[in-house]
Every structure is written in C-alpha cells, then in structure tokens.
C-alpha cells in the first residue's frame, strides 16, 4: 500500500489515534492521500471520519500519531499550510445575521491578515474574487440575502464558495453533498472533477459511496475508527471477489455451522434478516449445502453473487459477524 515517497502525498497520517470518553474514535489510522488525486474517505456515520479530518486540520489534538499536511509536520508550519487548503468540515457554518457576501468578506478579512505573515504569496481578496466564487456555486443572485434565509443547499454552496475564495492546493470536503438535491450533487461532482484537473488534490468524505465513487481515484474505508481498506478504486473493486449467498429462516444456526466447520473466511460473514453472505474457503458449494442440510438448516436458496461497489461497501462497513 506504499503509494510512493511522502513528497507526492498531500496528506499523510501515521498511527493517528484519538479517544473520546475512553473509546478510541480513531484508532491507529495511517492514511496516504496522493497529491492530485480525488480521495474518497468512506465510512458510515460515527466511524471517525470527521474526527480524523479535525485532526488533520489541527482542530482536535491527537492522543498519538502524526499528521503531515502538504509536506509540513510541525504544528505551526502545518497551520501555515492551511491557507493553501480549502475546506468544508461537518457542514457549513456562517453568521446568520450577515449576508452571504458579508460572510465571505469577513472570512477573507480575518483569514488573510493572519496568513499574510505566514505566506507572502497571498494578497487581499478583492470584491470580484468574492463575487466570482459566489458565481461559481450559483449564489451570486442571493449574495445580499441574510445567511439565515438560505436553504440548506445554498448554505452548502456558500461554504464551497468560501473554499474557492483564493487558489488552494488541497480541498478537504466533509460530506459535501449533504442536503443537496440530485442536481446539486451532480454539480458538486463536476466541480470536484474540474478542480482536480486544475491540479488540486481533493479529499472528500462520505457515508454514501455511490455519490463519490464515480469520480474517486483512491478510496479509504473506515469503520469504528479503524481503516478497513486503502487503495485505488480499481483495487477496491478487485478485492471483492465472489460471495456465497444463502437464503434461510435459520440464520443463527446456519452461521454457527458455517463458522464452526471453517467453511467461511473469518470476518467475511454478513448476516441479514433471512440471508447470509460470506466468502467461502472452499470452491465446493455442494459440500457446504450438504453440511447445512445435515445440520438441520432449512435452505431456501443458495447462489453466488458478484457485488457492486455499493454492496461491497455496505458489507465491509455494515453489520457482520465479527462486530457482534
């Protein structure tokens, strides 16, 4: 999983760990985000994605481990690099009593003087820069409206506009499609592709794979603070393989027989309401069915399935025998 020297990584974390209330929310996480990629950071809600993003951005202090952001490891240098990072963290947040335009103005006013001594390439953000950022996300007409009057989708767009106020090397987008209608989701996806083509690295988190899968070049999957997979989207698909599927009313019994006889790969067992899927350790399905029948399991149907990426994702992150 070595993706090359750290020089070509936009974000690298090593052994990153954070506990809240005695529970490891992020557990020994090592991520490698290649520069120039669209990196899909996937996992169900509560899997530790947001905490990871907060640690990368310096909002939360890790208990253990390191973060390297745009080749900067020292916290102070890392903070300086943030001016080259656009972001959306856990939804939009602006002052409800200011207009969209005033919010962006405040953001650039407060951000730029603070950054100028860190990064001399930055200059004052002009009125036209604010307007063009608003135009890019289709908010120019609503620029004078108070933020509190914005719809959820408009709020989301405004934070993307804030990330586009000045040139960035990296975009960190936490669930950017939340609250957007299908049309908006498509637009955000197109925007990400465009920005990547301009040379930006895009780190995008989502709990819904299908929304980002199409555009991602790399994928990482998290569950309960642990990294389950990291690699190219292609290798993610390849790792799936064929699965055995059993339909029965006796899922509990079937599970114990399959596990007990060592017929399935440990950890691959996924149990549904009246359905079990798993990776078999043997090619001989007949032998498996015989064992089940002998054990008294009412077998309704068996088969082999080849999963879509979405199903694989659900299988990987959803309820499985190892989580019980």
């Amino acid at each position: 999983m070595n993706l090359g020297s750290s020089n070509s990584l936009a974000i690298e974390t090593e052994d990153l760990t954070k506990a809240f209330g005695g529970r490891n929310v992020v557990d020994s996480l090592s991520l490698h985000v290649p520069a120039g990629s669209i990196y899909g950071f996937l996992g169900p809600n509560g899997s530790g994605k947001t905490t990871t993003i907060r640690m990368i951005l310096g909002l939360v202090f890790p208990d253990r481990g390191t973060v390297t952001l745009l080749a900067a490891k020292d916290p102070k240098e890392r903070r300086a690099r943030l001016s080259r990072v656009g972001m959306l963290v856990e939804g939009p947040a602006f002052y409800p009593y200011l207009s969209g335009y005033d919010n962006l103005k405040r953001f650039s006013q407060i951000a730029l003087p603070a950054q100028r001594h860190l990064d001399h390439s930055l200059s004052k953000v002009s009125k036209s820069a604010i307007e063009s950022a608003l135009e890019r996300v289709g908010l120019l007409e609503a620029a004078g409206k108070k933020y509190r009057a914005y719809s959820l989708g408009m709020k989301q767009r405004l934070s993307i506009a804030a990330a586009l106020l000045w040139p960035r090397e990296l975009l960190v987008l936490d669930e950017p499609t939340n609250g957007l209608d299908p049309q908006g989701i498509v637009e955000v996806r197109e925007l990400m592709t465009t920005l990547q083509k301009q040379g930006m690295t895009i780190f995008v988190s989502s709990h819904i794979l299908s929304e980002v899968e199409i555009i991602c070049s790399n994928i990482a999957v998290m569950r309960e603070g642990k990294l389950l997979f990291e690699g190219s989207t292609q290798s993610f698909r390849g790792s799936l393989g064929e699965r055995f599927e059993l339909e029965t009313a006796d899922v509990g019994l079937a599970e114990s027989i399959l596990s007990g006889l060592g017929l399935v790969e440990p950890g691959s067992l996924v149990i549904g309401h009246d359905r079990i899927t798993a990776k078999l350790t043997t090619e001989d399905i007949a032998r498996v069915v015989a064992a089940l029948v002998k054990g008294g399991v009412g077998v309704r149907a068996v088969g082999k399935t080849s999963h879509s990426l979405e199903e694989a994702f659900v299988n990987m992150t959803g309820r499985s025998s190892s989580a019980r």
Partner: peptide, 10 residues
C-alpha cells in the same frame, strides 16, 4: 460552528 472555520482559515 464558525470557530472551526476561523481556526482553519487559519
């Protein structure tokens, strides 16, 4: 929530 955006502004 604007605090997080101020901090990462940075």
């Amino acid at each position: 929530g604007t605090l997080r955006y101020l901090l990462v502004a940075p």
